[in-house]
Design a protein around this nucleic acid. Structure first.
Lengths: 169, 169
DNA sequence: TTTTATGTTCTGAACATACAGAACATTTGA
DNA sequence: TCAAATGTTCTGTATGTTCAGAACATAAAA
């Protein structure tokens, strides 16, 4: 009806996306819902997702909430239908950048702040291995921070650059 | 005895490193052992770690095994001591690259293989949204694979490049 | 050999996470 | 109003993870 790929192949992709989520600390259901939205690229409502993925409505509901908080999924309304439909960011790279931005903000920035604070306190200590190592770590995190800043600011250029890489292996 | 930084600051760093591990799917004990080895930069034996971190010997033992499997910690023998000591990779960037290499191999490569296989099977299907999206995903993962290959091969240059970035915020 | 020092693996209890179903809330149409 | 449709949040159970202590293994010293 919406695509021409067999159900089995869609399942295969959804399954793989779920496994990938696991590696990255994303709940399996969340990742599978996301995978299905990605591969089918059309709006789904909750009950359809329940039926297709065979998971509970509450699970689908919370998974969608999570996905929206990562800015990779959004609500859409279909004319003449009062149900809420969900669809994912259509551009794969844009999706990736959204996720990276969020993760940096939630998981990296607080760590950098914490290390910086420890580093600051350590300035009163006499020099030594520990102080030196702490500085090294902070410097590495700072570099990461800077690189991320550059990448997120020049997103369009990065995507253009990436598209210039040879396509075929 | 080994450094001049206060115990409290070491604890602070170890704690932060543990939290950071959590974000990245690394067990808290594993990350804390690693954090302590990083910040003190000297060989520790199991019983010392038990005493310092107040966790069980079995926990320390398995944590060290895990860290060795990531190539970020290695055994060393001190002359006249039959205990096994453990120390971490001294270069922060080298450490990061080791971890990235391992994670790519364990968590990314199998996903890429799986998606590629699905993609291959989909070539017999008539064109459609799903097939197109699948191709997009594969292309993105391929690009990542290529970039990682380049980065790991030119590790030294990357490190040099990174060191050229302005140091202060 | 036996004992002691050192490390690893096994086991069960405590803790955390995932998730279905129930209960609740809200909106729309009768 | 009330009933039906749609979504969200709560609650208890099942499943998975973490980790201390016990049991086991190995090697050095006595």
């Amino acid at each position: 009806m919406w695509g021409h790929m067999s159900e089995t192949l869609v399942d295969q992709f959804v399954e793989t996306w779920g496994v990938m989520g696991n590696s990255w600390g994303v709940n399996n259901s969340v990742a599978r819902v996301h995978g299905l939205l990605i591969i089918t690229d059309r709006p789904w409502c909750i009950d359809e997702l329940v039926e297709r993925l065979q998971i509970s409505k509450s699970n689908v509901s919370t998974s969608l909430k999570e996905l929206r908080s990562w800015n990779v999924v959004r609500k859409v309304f279909l004319p003449g239908d009062r149900r809420e439909f969900y669809t994912c960011e259509p551009d794969a790279w844009e999706m990736l950048f959204n996720i990276m931005r969020q993760r940096k903000q939630r998981e990296f920035d607080p760590i950098l702040a914490s290390i910086s604070s420890t580093c600051e306190q350590a300035r009163q200590c006499p020099a030594g291995i520990a102080v030196e190592r702490l500085g090294q770590m902070k410097q590495m995190l700072d570099t990461f921070d800077k690189l991320a800043g550059i990448a997120f600011k020049s997103e369009t250029q990065i995507k253009a650059l990436v598209s210039l890489l040879p396509k075929k292996k």
